[in-house]
Design a protein around this nucleic acid. Sequence first.
DNA 1: GCGTCTTTCTCCTCGGACAGGACAAAGTGC
DNA 2: GCACTTTGTCCTGTCCGAGGAGAAAGACGC
Lengths: 396, 396
Amino acid sequence: MRRMTARPGNAHQARLLRLLRDGGPNSRARLGDRVELSRSKLAVEIDRLLETGLVVADGLAASRGGRRSHNVRLNPRLRFLGVDIGATSVDVAVTNAELEILGHLNEPMDVREGPVAVFERVLSLAAKLRAAGWAEGFDGAGIGVPGPVRFPEGVPVAPPIMPGWDGFPVREALSQELGCPVLVDNDVNLMALGEQHAGVARSVADFLCVKIGTGIGCGIVVGGRVHRGTTGSAGDIGHIQAVPEGRPCACGNRGCLEAHFSGAALARDAEEAARQGLSGELAARLEANGTLSAVDVAAAAAAGDATSLDLIREGGTRTGQVIAGLVSFFNPGLVVIGGGVTGLGHTLLAALRTQVYRQSLPLATGNLPIVLGELGPTAGVIGGARLISDHLFSPA
Amino acid sequence: MRRMTARPGNAHQARLLRLLRDGGPNSRARLGDRVELSRSKLAVEIDRLLETGLVVADGLAASRGGRRSHNVRLNPRLRFLGVDIGATSVDVAVTNAELEILGHLNEPMDVREGPVAVFERVLSLAAKLRAAGWAEGFDGAGIGVPGPVRFPEGVPVAPPIMPGWDGFPVREALSQELGCPVLVDNDVNLMALGEQHAGVARSVADFLCVKIGTGIGCGIVVGGRVHRGTTGSAGDIGHIQAVPEGRPCACGNRGCLEAHFSGAALARDAEEAARQGLSGELAARLEANGTLSAVDVAAAAAAGDATSLDLIREGGTRTGQVIAGLVSFFNPGLVVIGGGVTGLGHTLLAALRTQVYRQSLPLATGNLPIVLGELGPTAGVIGGARLISDHLFSPA
DNA sequence: GCGTCTTTCTCCTCGGACAGGACAAAGTGC
DNA sequence: GCACTTTGTCCTGTCCGAGGAGAAAGACGC
């Protein structure tokens, strides 16, 4: 299939495309209510969008008491690809133009295998989704990688956990392979975009999205837009000092948040506790699997294991300390917690909340919800689709 | 004099006004080079601005090889008032429309006297500036107060060091008294605006402006615009925990940055050191004045007093710890240090820089200047003028 | 079934905005 | 004095868009 390459010709068309994306199929009349355009102008712009093929007619709407209006919708054959490359796994999903997930695949994977190997996996997953009939091709793709990205060029810069990716032209390479426009961003930024589009952060202008996985990162949304910082490393909160003279961290400092709490740190602490005989539950799991992960700790905690609960609580408190500082500084309207360890759920959240509410000023916390993300593992891929659709649905 | 009440009628006019504000008097031809307008359109818009009185003709420009162009400039009778209310003093200044300070007065004052008493002082200072011939009246005023402000209404909310100001309709009241449009903001935000307009932060999109005075606050500029947060308390970094289980703070927590370093904390520490006989220099000054302030510590440090230098260094390190976290989080392109304690100068800056560069990731600090503000006590008042002029020079 | 009312869509016209060319005015430089 | 450059003004053609008129299509009451 020849892919759509058209872009809206002006801001009105871009506006209409986004309305159709976020509100689904809609009648011309109802669109007219939401846009400050005369009926004639609106008709002209919609006709032009129909010509480009981005939008198609979709039958007649129900009557609102008079003549029935013609519906329009985004071309149902449009497909976006969302890719969320994590430290230890990769998610690939196809969405339609309304950013609804049609097909979603997940595979364990080690990002340290390097970009070439990882892209092979990504492309094969994308091919699998095509083979399953979810897409004939892609009109755009949004890629999340677990490290800082120079956004305009789509190139990772000095990513600590991704040796071999530094400077690799991810955007360029994938655009070539996929034959469509591609944008690359930090994975936490995509998660933030996902939660903003379809999750708990709808209609919140300023919020933080803390992702606790193998590492810890934070997506920052200011005035509805992602803040990436001067070098693309904004939100890199894993190496903020949480414990003065604390544990040594891979980054060379001591006491970094990530060294004390993250998926990796939690697994290590759990293994140590198991070996020291502090927890029969954990020891049994270690015996069974030969290794422990955050999932094991979550399961043990759910089973009432005191050691696991303590580990989670302490991690929540540490994370809360750091977030409390960020809340004072940034004064968000919402804090979303997501990532792999959300399985730890409300134990983690409770400890974290307690610490934030205790340590930040009342004015900043007075009406500050701190909640788990709604979308789980789909946040990243939805965010990827959202990223590229925002780009494509803006004037050329 | 009847004041100008005109506002630009469209975005083009607003653009031209800002160009004239930031670039000074200019020829029509040169303005044409900087805006994407046809000559005819440009002429129309400038004529309209001339009609409103916001802009006046200003003779002929030098030839650029052909016919000489007509100069235009902002009306030289336009006057803005910048007011910077600190915890212990107040600055009031008059600027012209190009935001150049014409007259500037400073008075010690205690903000705890409450809004009514403070405004009396502010209005009397403004009257003094009028009497000195700097202004016949004001076309707009920007007011900075040392606490959080609900910006749209111009009302302080729950300000810790300003009892009696909570909910006082500052904007409303001053607008009434001064007979001109007024905007009210947190003082650190004004300082950031000032340094952005006329100081070290020109042409930096994302930066932090840390003000260390009686307390500690931080102006946040994202994409060239001030970030105020959901409740107007963004940048309130004085109560971020710098020392776990540290000193008790007025806010009820322990170890807040402000409790360990700020103008107030520094004075208290210096007095204690003097009483304990740790520093002859400080003891002598305490003897002489009956009390010590940050200025005394600065002077003693300049004279080589080891205790004072240690106090400053330790404060710089503490502040650096907190800023390091903010740098990792926010990834600014510049950090500006300002406020009353800038008299401590390079001793403070050196300690602070060391700590930030050591504790943040290289990607964030790689090309990150950390510098003292250029404008000193005028940053706030220039920022005030800038704030209101941005407002007035935007489409109605 | 019929007439009336409502809603939607298309067509048309009118007015305004603006770009760009032509031209006049005012200089420069040889 | 002449050729060339720059600037400002005027004018015209074009494009855009608002809004009215009216047709199309349906709801609803009788």
